[in-house]
C-alpha cells in the first residue's frame, strides 16, 4: 500500500460521498446520469465477487463493501426515492454501445478464462467507459452544477492516482497488470478535457458551461 493508492481510494470514496450528499441535500438528482450510476453498480458487483472466495485484508473487504453499498444507494436515490427529479430525457446514451464491446473484449482479452476472472476483466473494461453517459449528458445540456463537477473531479483524480500507484508498484514490487493499466490510462484520458474545464472555470468560481 503506497501513498498514491491510499489517496486514490480516498478520492474515489470522496467522489461517491459528494454525489450522495448532493442528491440528499438538494432532494434532487438533476444533472446526474442514472445510466452511469447503474454501470458503476455493475462494475462493483462484477469486480468484488472475490469477497466470497478470498480474504485479502480488513481494509480491502471494508472498502469493497462500502463502495458496493454507496453505488446501490445512489442508484436507489435516482430511480426510486428521487426519480421525479431525474432528467431521463437528457440521459439518452445507448448503453448497448458500451456493454456489447466491453463484454466481447472481456471474453477475448483476460488473464484466464474462468467466470470470476472474466467478470473482473469485464468490470475493469466497463469502469473505463462508465462515465461516458454522464459526460454525454453534460455535453447535451451544456452545463453542470458545481457540486457535480467536484464529483467528477475526484472520480477522475482517483484513476489518475491509480496510474501513479501502478508506476510505483512497477518500480518497487515489479507488479504490473496490463489489463488494469491500459484500461486505467483510457479511463483517465476521458477525464482530461473535463480536468481542463474544471481548472480553468470551476476553480475560478465560474459555473461549468459549455460554449
Amino acid at each position: 500500500m503506497n501513498i498514491f493508492r491510499i489517496l486514490g481510494d480516498v478520492s474515489h470514496l470522496l467522489a461517491m460521498i459528494i454525489l450522495l450528499v448532493k442528491i440528499w441535500r438538494s432532494k434532487s438528482c438533476a444533472g446526474i446520469s442514472g445510466k452511469s450510476q447503474i454501470l458503476f453498480a455493475l462494475v462493483f458487483t462484477t469486480r468484488y465477487l472475490d469477497l466470497f472466495t478470498i480474504f485479502i485484508s480488513v481494509y480491502n473487504t471494508v472498502m469493497k463493501v462500502i463502495f458496493l453499498v454507496c453505488a446501490y444507494i445512489t442508484v436507489y436515490m435516482i430511480y426510486m426515492k428521487f426519480h421525479k427529479t431525474f432528467d431521463r430525457e437528457h440521459d439518452s446514451f445507448r448503453l448497448e454501445f458500451l456493454l456489447v464491446p466491453v463484454t466481447g473484449l472481456s471474453f477475448l482479452e483476460n488473464h484466464s478464462f474462468t467466470p470470476l476472472e472474466i467478470l473482473w476483466t469485464f468490470s475493469i473494461y466497463l469502469e473505463s467507459v462508465a462515465i461516458l453517459p454522464q459526460l454525454f449528458m453534460i455535453s447535451k445540456t451544456g452545463e453542470a452544477e458545481t457540486i457535480t463537477t467536484h464529483y467528477l473531479f475526484f472520480l477522475g483524480l482517483y484513476r489518475a492516482l491509480y496510474l501513479a500507484n501502478w508506476i510505483w508498484r512497477y518500480h518497487t514490487e515489479n507488479f504490473y497488470d496490463q489489463i488494469a493499466v491500459v484500461s486505467g490510462v483510457v479511463q483517465t484520458i476521458f477525464y482530461c478535457d473535463f480536468f481542463y474545464l474544471y481548472v480553468t472555470k470551476v476553480l475560478k468560481g465560474k459555473k461549468l458551461s459549455l460554449p
Binding site: R5, D9, H12, I54, I56, N60, T114, E117, A180
Partner: peptide, 10 residues
Amino acid sequence: GQGVDGKDEL
C-alpha cells in the same frame, strides 16, 4: 498481489 482468484486493488 493480483491473483486469479482475488485482487488487492479496488
